[in-house]
Amino acid sequence: MISKIAKLANLISENKKMEKDFSSILDYVNKLKEVDVSNVEETANLSCSINVFRKDIEEKKDNALILELMPEKRNNYLVVNEVFEEND
């Protein structure tokens, strides 16, 4: 289930070594259960940043190199698989 969310083929059940590694790491991180964190705030971000805004004007960028990287394109548009299937 989890590997489906992560958009990886179902690796854990197919790969014994990965399964073993994964459970040993999970066991290890369970160590955190010992720590008392009542009344402790979370730290998600350490930056001293403030919101930065740019002027709301179009920025001309050179897209040639980005277009170059695209696996398939038509008239400078990226070609992708269809998102909706016929039954949808």
Binding site: V29, L32, K33, V35, V37, V40, E41, E42, T43, A44
Partner: peptide
Amino acid sequence: KALKVRTLIK
């Protein structure tokens, strides 16, 4: 939980 432990480490 890890974010809270991070605070304690800091």
